[in-house]
Design a protein around this nucleic acid. Structure first.
Lengths: 216, 216
DNA sequence: AGATAATTTCAACACTTGTTGAATTGTGCT
DNA sequence: AGCACAATTCAACAAGTGTTGAAATTATCT
């Protein structure tokens, strides 16, 4: 767990994380970051170099921890399944639940971080530059597991289904609050539990529909 | 259909559309727009006022046309269903197919516009400001239809399912090309037909799973 | 053709941007 | 204490920002 030291260096990272998630890379200035962190402008450059380097530092900071948690969840559900392959539902749950946990932490940094991931993943400019280096390996593991759970599926179908999953997840991470208004308050973007409790069976059913439903 | 006059005014709109979709509001300068449109900087201000007004003009330009097409598709599938309610699948298809058509137009403006919609919809800052005024009414129609098609569903479940649909759609519109790399070229973001052909049954199955499956 | 209005360019404004080098303060070590 | 080094601030830079008013050009109409 990334602890929340109150050094100026970490305050810069936290503020940058929050502002980049809300306004995107170009919508944030070094001065706003510095001001939000109650720090001189030059200090951010001193610690991180160029603005782009700071952006990358924010992006990388929680990556290992997050990937570790998700991979552990996958390994665990594979262990639970014994010799058989885990269910599609279990695999998807392993993919998603660690995010719910992160978002529910008291530290708002994780919420901001995941919102930043959503921003990057949905951006035609940043997506191709940033997503692969951090997430491709992990996603590959999950896709491999899904292929084994759906052995009769065509490979491309798996990828299209994953694309749907990734999109729904991305919008959830973004925390736009749109569903709050649409539903008239009946649903809340901040109710992560409800979001994932609905997403998991929804996505599992979609996978089975498109990829042919064996017993998994 | 918004025609593609080559007036300088329209060139400004088209270039702004393209750049806003790619880099977001703050990632684009009036000068880059002007330069891309081979036009003086001051002309954009002359025609549209402030930068934010230009952004709104781009956002509004194709809205009516798009909403009209989607509503027509909904009405048509309702007509086809006669006295019964249309299938969940048919409703979702009416929601999505007009977008595919738009993206497949020769004019790249529609692709850019929908990518811009994706940017706005996924942004915690812009989403709440811009999405409602244009899309709430239309979305309300579709959700009402889905409620009737799934009469035993709890209202909140419908909204959560719609949220999943909206997220997957958003990532598709964004055109990040991420699936291209992930799948090693087996899937292409630019293959809109394949994207929607997979999305429709996937989403319908998700809705039925979460919202209880009557005969619709 | 000539008058009027719409369009387009030019030049400039006040302000903000990221970044840097020098100066200052703080910290840890012996 | 004194020294080395990291952390932090200050001041300033050249470049880029949105916006505007006046001038110049083009279109429109009688």
């Amino acid at each position: 767990m990334t602890q929340c030291k109150n050094t100026k260096r970490d305050r810069i990272l936290n503020t940058a994380e929050e502002l980049f998630a809300l306004h995107g890379y170009d919508g944030v200035t070094m001065r706003k970051i510095a001001s939000g962190a109650s720090v001189d402008v030059a200090l951010a450059s001193y610690h991180f170099g160029k603005k782009l380097d700071l952006f990358n530092a924010v992006f990388d900071r929680r990556a290992e921890s997050l990937n570790g948690a998700r991979l552990t969840a996958l390994r665990l559900c594979q262990k639970d399944a014994g010799k058989r392959e885990p269910t599609v539902e279990k695999i998807i749950e392993a993919f998603l639940r660690p995010l719910e946990l992160a978002q529910e932490t008291a530290d708002p940094g994780w919420k901001n971080y995941l919102s930043l991931i959503a921003y990057v993943n949905n951006s035609p400019y940043w997506g191709p530059l940033m997503m692969s280096k951090i997430f491709d390996e992990l996603v590959g593991e999950f896709i491999a597991a899904l292929k084994r759970a759906l052995p009769q599926a065509r490979e491309e179908d798996i990828y299209w289904c994953y694309h749907n999953l990734s999109g729904a997840l991305t919008l959830t991470l973004a925390q736009t609050g749109r569903i709050d208004k649409l539903s008239g308050g009946k649903c809340l973007s901040s109710d992560f539990r409800a979001a994932y409790d609905h997403m998991i069976p929804f996505m599992a059913a979609g996978f089975r529909q498109v990829c042919g439903s064996g017993q998994n």
